[in-house]
Each structure stands twice: as C-alpha cells, then as structure tokens.
Design a protein around this nucleic acid. Structure first.
Lengths: 238, 238
DNA sequence: AGGTCCCTCACCATAAATGGCGAAGGAGAA
DNA sequence: TTCTCCTTCGCCATTTATGGTGAGGGACCT
C-alpha cells in the first residue's frame, strides 16, 4: 500500500460518524493490507469495552466469556509499552496465555499479530491490532514496510473513537486554587494533615478548609477520592 | 521537507544515546523545519520535568520561576486533547495565560506554536512543540504540510526519552494482586472501607489486609498515598 | 461599590482509619 | 514436594480524619 493510500484511508476514516462506519473501516483496512483481521479495542476505566473489528462474533463471545481480557499478553504487554509490538515478542509463558493463544488460533486469529498501544487523555488506553496466519518472515516484512502507516492509521482511528465517545470524556471538573492543589499534592505524597500544614506553613485548620473546598469542587466523597480525581484530572501531579 | 527526510530524522533520532544528543536533535529539527524553536518536555510522575529544546535558558528559568507550568494553556490544553493543537486554538482568556504569552514573546517564543501531546505507559505525559514567529497563514500551511511527519517525529522523540529515562520509568513497583487493585480502585472512587468491603463481599478486616499489603508493596505511607501511587503507576484506573 | 472567590484561623463531637499480630486453606511455581 | 503468594478472617488500642459553622482581610472583576 502506498503512502497515498494510507492518507486516503485516514481521510475516509475522518468522515466516519458512527460506530458502524468505524466497523466498516476495519474491514477496509483488512482488505487493503491483506491481513486476516483488524481490530480496535478500548478498555475503559470501569473495565467496559468499546471496540470493533473483523473478529468473528464466536471469538469475541469466547474472549468475553473466558475473561481473557485480564490474561491477554497483548493487552498487558501493550500497557507497559510505548511502541507497537509483534505478538511473538510478548511473554506467552503463563499457562493462561498459552491457553488463550491456542483458543485464538482455533478461531482463526493469529499466530501472527501486530498491536499498537494508543493512549489518550485521562488515561485512555486502546489497542489497535492486525492479526494474520502467514509465516514469520512474510509477517516481519509486511510490518516493517507498513509500520509508520499503521501508527498513523491507528491514531486516526482512535481519534474517531474519542469523538464518538465524547460524552464520556469531556467532563471537566472545576479548577482548583493553587493552595488546594498544593494541599492535595502533599496529601497524595503521603503526608498527613499535620505534616502537610507544617509544610505549607499554615494551621491544620486552614489546611482542612482547602481539603474541604477541593472535595466539594471535585465532587469527591472523601480525601482519597479527591486526590484520585485531582490526579485523574491532571490538576495535581505526584 | 520530504517524507524521506522525515524518515532520516527518525533514523538519526533512533541512534541518540544521551540527553545531549536529544538536545542536538531538537536543533536539527528546528533547522530542518525552519522554525524558531523545537521543544520536548515531559512532566513526570513526581512533578519533575525532563525536557530539552531550543528555548533560551532565560526563558526556561523564567518559566520555572513563575511556575507557569500550571497556567500554561499549552500544557493544560494538550492534557485534555488527543490531537496536536495549534496554539491559536487554545484558550488564552485567563489573565495568567495572557501574561505568560506576553512573557514568552518577550523571550522570542511564539506567537505561533504547534504542540503534540504524547502519552506513554503509566500515565506518562509529554508535549512536543514547535514555536515560531511567522504569520497565521504561513504557519497554517507549514503545519498542515508537516503534520503527519511531526507526529511520527514526536513519537520517535518520546520513545528515545523513555529509553533514556528507563531507570526512572522502569522502577516497576511490585505488582498488585487483583484483590489489592480492586480494593484501591474502590477506595479511589470514594468508598470508605466498610462500603468497599461490602462491594467486594468480604469482611472489612480482610479488606484492610489488602490495603496494608498494597501500601507496603507501593511503599506508601497511608491509603491516600497508596491510591495516588497506584494511579500514577497505572495499576488502577478511576 | 458590591459580589465573588481566595487565604487564613478556631472549635467540637463523632466517625473512620491505622498499626500490628496471629491464623489457615488454596493455587501455582521451582 | 516445598515454598511463596493470594485470599480470607479476627482483635484492640490509638491516632487521624470528618462535617459543620463562623469570621475577617485581601484580590479581582464589573
């Protein structure tokens, strides 16, 4: 596939407005790259999944039923990586992983695979995958040749998914004041209120006011919750 | 700059082995793209900054001294975005932001800028920026033509930075067990111990064991600290 | 000039978290 | 098989956090 075709594909993608069109895009990418499967899936904060691709419904059901998500070396491996990864580079040594791979191959998935980790705001984590049955060398050649295209395509894909799930992601909470941020930061670093107050050179009572106001702004039920939200919001950094 | 040059640049980048070489890479990119400044900076999990680029030391010192980090619309705006952003699209309406921009321009930075958010494992967040003084139309043209190159270059850059900071970043804190993760997740969501225990259908005493063991694994001083670390590690998501 | 938000401090009773200790069955790895 | 780690539970004294309310001075915006 030429660079121009990769660009065309991204244009096509950018016009998608529904999940169904994203679904069709995975099929187009599969055909264009001449691989068995193309899959995008996004694991969100509450363990729900948003995805589409060319896997058979049987395999998807199987995957969900067996709760492979938390044993899948692809998901786990990509989570700690920045670069795309060839499935063969992953750690398949655990029992659950080998079992899953066998199961996948029985469903026409693999053994070759190339998965690209994608990360978005607020800890979004998604994986874009190509899977195929060809031999090691052919697979290597294909991936090396298309690596950069694939990265761009996967990002275009994720961008679309983010757009479609906009509602989930655009919830901005109130801005914390500098003192509130400092307070939560110190608490997030393990200080108790007395220590944090001393650090900021204010009374513990004053510090408590900041914690309370931060809690209310963030809609948090307690200090730990407030710290978690402030972190997730990026309002503080630990 | 041709696509081939973009590829060359990535090859060059991939050979860098020190921070100084990354520094020189920003200069090379600046010259190649004919812009005033190229900057990469990464705000890491302990609030430290790792960055390099072509900004003057005066401006960097000023930036740090005035604590612009938390008022910088570029940093904040990119944090909530997936796509690269032109500075003109950002919200400069706050007083602090306008002040910063004026200050930046006094130091030869801006008013045009193009910043690419980059995210890596464990909530890594970095920004790759091009800044320049040319007019809106010229800037727009440059960015549109080079957008895809820049995304790839910025990723190659970040990949290198991750490699160089491996020590900092690969400090894998001990893996939490599933129960420990669930426990911390529930606490991070604002549950108190009684509620979390009920949710997991275990006794509060048992739950406490998970909190304690998680605390010890994470080297945390209290529950809030543990939750903050687990979040920063990406071991839990809220 | 008045409103809003930020920073600062105080008091008090109650609810919740903490720090250790001990114990036992089960799964998985070496 | 032995050993480690996970999961589950119990107890107790002590420290800490929480939820309200009240109040004054200062900065900034309209």
């Amino acid at each position: 596939m030429s660079v121009n075709k990769a660009i065309d594909m991204q244009k096509e993608l950018s016009q998608a407005t529904t999940l169904e069109e994203l679904q069709r895009a995975t099929e187009a990418i599969r055909d264009e790259y001449r691989v068995d499967h193309v899959v995008y899936h996004w694991v969100n904060s509450v363990g729900e999944r948003f995805g589409c691709g060319t896997y058979s419904t049987e395999w998807i059901d199987r995957y969900l039923e067996k709760d492979y998500l938390y044993n899948d070396p692809v998901i786990l491996g990509c989570f700690y990586r920045f670069d795309p990864v060839n499935w063969k580079q992953l750690d398949w040594s655990s029992k659950g992983a080998r079992e899953m791979l066998r199961d996948a191959m029985d469903h026409g998935v693999g053994p070759q695979g190339f998965s690209i980790p994608i990360r978005g705001p607020k800890g979004q984590y998604a994986v874009f995958t190509l899977a195929d049955g060809r031999n090691d060398q052919d697979w290597q050649d294909l991936i090396e040749a298309r690596r950069k295209d694939l990265i761009l395509v996967s990002h275009a894909f994720n961008r679309k998914a983010l757009e479609l799930e906009e509602g989930v992601f655009n919830l901005q909470s109130a801005q914390l004041s500098p003192r509130e941020r400092s307070t939560l930061t110190l608490l997030a670093k393990g200080n108790n209120r007395a220590q944090a107050a001393k650090e900021l050179d204010i009374s513990e009572n004053t510090l408590r006011v900041y914690v309370e106001s931060a809690r209310h702004k963030l809609g948090a039920l307690n200090t730990t919750h407030a710290v978690a939200r402030a972190l997730a919001d990026g309002q503080i950094v630990v």
